[in-house]
Simulated scan of single mutants.
Amino acid sequence: MQALKVKFLLVLRNILRHKRCSTISISSVTFGIVALLLASGFIEFIFQDFRETTIRSQLGHLQIVKPHYFEAGKADPYRFLFPDDLEQNLSNNFTLSNDIHPIETIVPRLSFSGLISHGDATLSFIGEGVDPQEQVYFGNALKISTGSNLSADHPDHLIMGEGLARNLGVKAGDQIVLLVNTATGGINAVEMIIGGLFSTVTKSYDDSALRLPISTARQLLRTQGAHSWVVLLNDTNQTDQMLAALRNTLSQDCFEIVPWYQLADFYNKTTVLFTKQVQAIKLIITLIILLGISNTMTMNVVERTGEIGTAMALGVKKFDILRQFLCEGALIGGIGGALGILIGWLLATIISNIGIPMPPPPGMARGYIGEILLTSNMVLEALALAILTTLIASVYP
């Protein structure tokens, strides 16, 4: 223990003795770690915000449907309807209590499509019959930009995406006509009032989607039941756990339980793109640290040629000298990494409190206020990267 302490003090003394080289090296590491943390934290916030908004505005954490509904449901939707008593059966199997169970709520969805008309304009749409009370649990991820959300007191009101309203040339308060194919093969129409316009994170969804109370949708389609039951959890991290529990509880012959990440195609493609960008940033920062440390360590070795020769003349082995320089590099990496983490955390806190106004990215319907979200894994990764790169950069000189 005493020998390790002596070696550590010797390495620290050498770093303090060569202030110029050490300062340049530590600054290079610190700058790189700060840049890595801020970039990674910003992407991490985008992932989390995009994920939660996608879940709470559209998909829920899990969807319970009949087998093969997502493959063949659009061609023959009425063959995949659940009966009305499914809600009671699900409630009997799962106690919806926030205190003792991860399930926050289970709500029905009735999907359909048809034509929407206003004046001389007619467009196709995709519609969903939803429980007006679900907004109590799902929050404001589906943002109402104009008007108000669905209400059980106004069964003749619907809400539609801003893009669909813009294409149709309507606004909140206007009256429209919905035309659909019924379950018996006929055609039915209903006049409704646009109660509000909404926006989600997905522009393509907002350009074609509308929602109305599920009771009105059932009357319009002349059917009962629901196509899917959407499960909302208290914590997204419990998705896989509840997926396994539901699959073990419900018969696989009658039910298919699909997690949100299998349905969120746009989210998955976006995260793949951003992950590649973060990896590219990590590679660039690693190269910057390697080049910076290699240069300063080379200068350090050249300046200490006499010292190295004296040590070898006194019997110090080449391996011991190499180990000393590696320890100096590791200590420089540790100090630079620690400073980078501290400065990165302070900047992340300040930036998050101020917020970063961001325009709508491609394929998204609205802008957002960006933040920097740092995680423990991210911090440990950054510290390990700092120490590892300085160790590698110390070998060659």
Rank of each mutant, 00 (worst) to 15 (best):
N188M: 00
V29R: 07
F125L: 06
S113W: 02
M358E: 14
T202Y: 06
I106G: 02
F274S: 01
L12C: 12
N181G: 10
T390R: 07
D99I: 07
G60K: 00
N234V: 06
E134N: 13
Y78A: 07
A245V: 10
N377F: 12
L115D: 02
T296Q: 02
T105K: 14
Q252P: 07
I341Y: 03
L263E: 14
G355T: 07
E256C: 05
A393Y: 14
G196D: 12
G32Q: 04
W345G: 12
T310M: 08
M364A: 08
T122R: 04
F255M: 00
G344N: 11
A172W: 11
A311N: 01
M364R: 01
E52Y: 10
V29W: 12
A393D: 00
F274H: 01
R323T: 06
T275C: 10
R20E: 04
A365T: 13
T390P: 03
C21N: 12
Y69T: 11
L232R: 09
L331P: 06
L346I: 13
G169Y: 09
R211G: 02
F325H: 09
Q224M: 10
G292H: 04
H154N: 12
M1S: 13
I55P: 12
G173V: 10
Q241M: 12
Q279W: 15
D99V: 12
D120T: 14
M242S: 03
T105M: 11
G32N: 04
G355R: 08
Q175L: 02
Q58N: 14
P360L: 08
N140F: 07
L38A: 08
Q88F: 10
T216D: 00
G355D: 02
F8Q: 00
I15H: 04
L142F: 09
V65S: 09
S199F: 01
S215M: 05
L142V: 08
A384G: 13
G337V: 09
M192T: 10
M299S: 05
P155A: 02
L212R: 06
E307M: 15
C254D: 15
A141R: 05
D253V: 07
E381N: 14
G329P: 05
I116P: 02
M378L: 15
N353S: 09
P83T: 08
E71K: 09
F42Y: 14
L373P: 01
